[in-house]
Simulated scan of single mutants.
Amino acid sequence: MGVRAGVVVCAVSFLLGALFTHWIADSLTLWKSPVTEQNLWTAASYYAIIAKGHIYLHYFVAAVVSIGGVTILWNLRDGEAGNLMFDGGSIFLFATTVALYNYSVIPKILTVFSSLPMHQPNDAVPEDLRSTILELASNNLICSVALTGVLGLQAGRFWAENSSDDDAEDLVDDRGKSPPLESGAESS
Rank of each mutant, 00 (worst) to 15 (best):
G2K: 10
G6N: 02
C10R: 11
G17R: 01
A18M: 12
F20H: 07
W23F: 10
A25K: 01
S27W: 12
L28H: 05
T29W: 05
T29E: 11
L30T: 13
L30C: 12
S33Y: 04
S33P: 03
P34I: 11
P34H: 04
Q38I: 10
A43H: 04
A43F: 12
A44N: 08
A44T: 07
I49N: 13
A51Q: 02
G53L: 06
G53R: 01
G53Y: 09
I55C: 00
I55T: 05
V64S: 01
V64A: 03
V64D: 00
I67G: 00
V70C: 08
V70A: 09
T71H: 09
I72V: 15
N75M: 15
L76T: 03
A81F: 08
N83G: 15
L84M: 15
F86Q: 00
G89Q: 06
I91D: 11
A95H: 13
T97E: 08
V105D: 01
I106F: 07
L110V: 05
T111L: 10
V112H: 07
V112C: 06
S115L: 04
L116R: 02
P117N: 02
H119N: 13
P121Y: 03
D123W: 14
D123I: 10
D128E: 11
L129F: 03
R130C: 11
R130V: 05
L134F: 06
E135S: 15
L136S: 01
A137K: 03
L141W: 15
C143L: 07
S144E: 13
L153E: 02
G156A: 11
F158M: 06
F158G: 07
A160R: 07
A160D: 14
N162W: 08
N162R: 14
D165W: 03
E169A: 11
E169V: 12
L171H: 00
V172P: 00
D173V: 07
D174P: 00
R175S: 13
G176Y: 09
S178N: 05
P180S: 12
G184S: 05
G184M: 07
S187C: 05
S187E: 08
S188H: 03
